[in-house]
């Protein structure tokens, strides 16, 4: 991955995350500050790691269904 891309992503995340702490919806379960950044980090981490594990379990050679 390009280092410059990551730097831009981090800067944008810090800026938007900072603004997002103050501009919140008036009601709803997502009004807690940091709800969406935390959701994104948790979901991506859990799903990517889970998928890596599951893929090993579910993976078969390409000709698995050749019988039909």
């Amino acid at each position: 991955m390009n280092d410059r891309l990551i730097r831009y992503l981090v800067i944008a995340a810090v800026v938007l995350g900072g603004i997002g702490l103050f501009i919140r919806p008036e009601s709803g379960v997502d009004r807690v500050p940091g709800f969406y950044p935390l959701t994104a980090v948790l979901i991506i981490t859990l799903v990517v790691l889970g998928v890596r594990m599951l893929a090993r379990l579910l993976e078969r050679p390409e000709d698995e269904y050749d019988a039909d």
Partner: peptide, 26 residues
């Protein structure tokens, strides 16, 4: 709008960090 952009941005950032550590998608 801000929340959705945050969600997508942090998702991309998290994935880039995981991928750099060798923990990206197979």
């Amino acid at each position: 709008i801000l929340d959705q952009v945050q969600l997508l941005l942090f998702a991309l950032l998290t994935y880039v960090v995981l991928a750099r550590r060798g923990l990206g998608l197979p």
